[in-house]
Amino acid sequence: MLDEMLGFIASNTMCVLATTGTPACCSSGRLPIPHCSLMAYVSIEGGVTLYMVTSKDSRKFLNMQEVAQVSLLIDDRHLHASALHSGTKALTVSAIAELQLASDEYERARALFHSVHPHLDSLIHQPESALIRLTVRELLLLTDSETSFFEKIA
């Protein structure tokens, strides 16, 4: 099942990223509120490593500076538009975010991101943008409303 889950990551390029910060990063002084963002991504190493681009002053980037643990939702609902919900799969991914990449990794990731998402070139090349690496730790695949599979990556 792990191979199917990683293949699901590798065969997609869009996800919802969920982050949260610590109370110190929240201006309200209350408990942090989870923040979700639709994100483009690229994957390597069979789906175990993902890269995303975001602005360094975005809430998600600031949250990841505080709390590196993130969650992603990747689904295939776009394949089932004619029969809504029929056969849709959803994968929840727990990952650790790394915000500082070595220059050689940064350049390789940027080239890969450009090859998959050329429409985001202007974002990639902005000085206030950051390339983020996500390392997958846990996967939860739902194949229907009653069937789920969990895998942990060592």
Rank of each mutant, 00 (worst) to 15 (best):
R77F: 00
G46W: 14
I33C: 00
T13R: 15
C36F: 14
A109P: 09
S71I: 14
E151W: 06
V42D: 08
K89T: 13
S148R: 05
H119Q: 14
E4I: 12
D57P: 10
Q65T: 02
V67W: 02
S82R: 01
Y106C: 10
D121R: 11
A40M: 14
L134D: 06
P32N: 07
G7D: 14
D144W: 04
A90S: 14
E45F: 11
L62D: 06
E151H: 10
L139M: 08
E128S: 13
L140Q: 03
A40Y: 14
A97S: 04
A154P: 09
S145N: 01
T49E: 15
L79A: 09
D104E: 08
L50T: 12
L140K: 05
S11P: 06
M39W: 14
L38Y: 12
H35D: 08
S11D: 08
A111M: 09
T88Q: 05
A97G: 04
A10C: 06
L73V: 11
R77Q: 04
C25P: 02
P34Y: 04
T135D: 15
E107K: 06
E4K: 12
T22C: 06
G29E: 07
L142S: 05
H85P: 00
A81Y: 07
L72F: 10
F113Q: 01
L112H: 07
N12M: 00
S27I: 15
S71T: 13
S94Q: 06
E138W: 04
A18V: 06
F61T: 03
I124G: 02
V116K: 01
A90D: 00
G87C: 11
L79R: 15
M52E: 15
D104P: 05
H35Q: 12
V116I: 13
I9Q: 10
S148T: 00
E138A: 12
L62K: 06
M64F: 07
H80Y: 01
V42F: 04
T54V: 13
C15S: 08
F113L: 12
S145Q: 10
E128W: 10
V93S: 04
L140A: 07
L6C: 03
P23G: 03
L101Q: 00
L73R: 03
